[in-house]
Computed example of a mutant assay.
Amino acid sequence: MIHLNLSNEEQLLVNSESEKRGKNIVVAYLLCIFLGDLGIHRFYLGRKGSAIAQLILTITVMGLIVSVVWKIVDLFLIPEIIHENNDQLEEQIVQEVISKRS
């Protein structure tokens, strides 16, 4: 996302910080595939409430079935979650850059 009120140097800084602080889709998928039943990928993505719920569900036999289905659904949701997270992070970084101008 290009912010018109930023100089080229500021935009480069925003892009660099966004890449450094942002979530990685490969990491999210690996966590989901290997530890998804425990909700570890949701902790990584900053979704602590649903991560705790998934972790608790995994403890029960019936909940384990629900958790496996939830993990499969998450495989399709991960790209959008990361996109939203990284967009919010970029906006935060832009505000940090703008506030440092003064």
Rank of each mutant, 00 (worst) to 15 (best):
Q11A: 12
Q11E: 14
L12K: 15
L12C: 11
L13E: 15
L13P: 03
L13W: 13
L13N: 10
V14W: 02
V14N: 00
V14G: 00
N15R: 03
N15K: 07
S16C: 10
S16W: 10
S16D: 14
S16T: 15
S16Q: 15
E17R: 12
S18H: 02
S18T: 15
S18V: 10
S18Y: 01
E19R: 02
E19K: 03
E19C: 01
K20V: 04
K20M: 11
R21C: 06
R21S: 11
K23Y: 13
N24R: 00
I25R: 11
I25Q: 12
V26G: 04
V26N: 09
V26H: 09
V27K: 13
A28N: 08
A28C: 09
Y29I: 02
Y29L: 10
Y29C: 02
L31Y: 06
I33E: 09
I33Q: 06
F34S: 02
L35Y: 12
L35E: 08
L38N: 03
I40V: 15
I40S: 07
I40H: 06
H41S: 08
R42T: 07
R42P: 02
G46F: 04
K48E: 09
G49K: 07
G49M: 01
G49L: 04
S50D: 13
S50M: 14
A51I: 06
I52K: 07
L55S: 14
I56D: 08
L57G: 09
L57A: 10
T58N: 12
T60Y: 11
T60R: 01
M62F: 15
G63V: 07
G63M: 06
G63T: 08
L64D: 10
I65V: 14
I65D: 10
I65H: 05
V66R: 05
V66D: 09
S67M: 01
V68W: 11
V68R: 04
V69K: 08
W70C: 00
W70M: 04
W70V: 03
W70L: 05
W70G: 00
K71I: 06
I72Y: 14
V73F: 14
D74P: 05
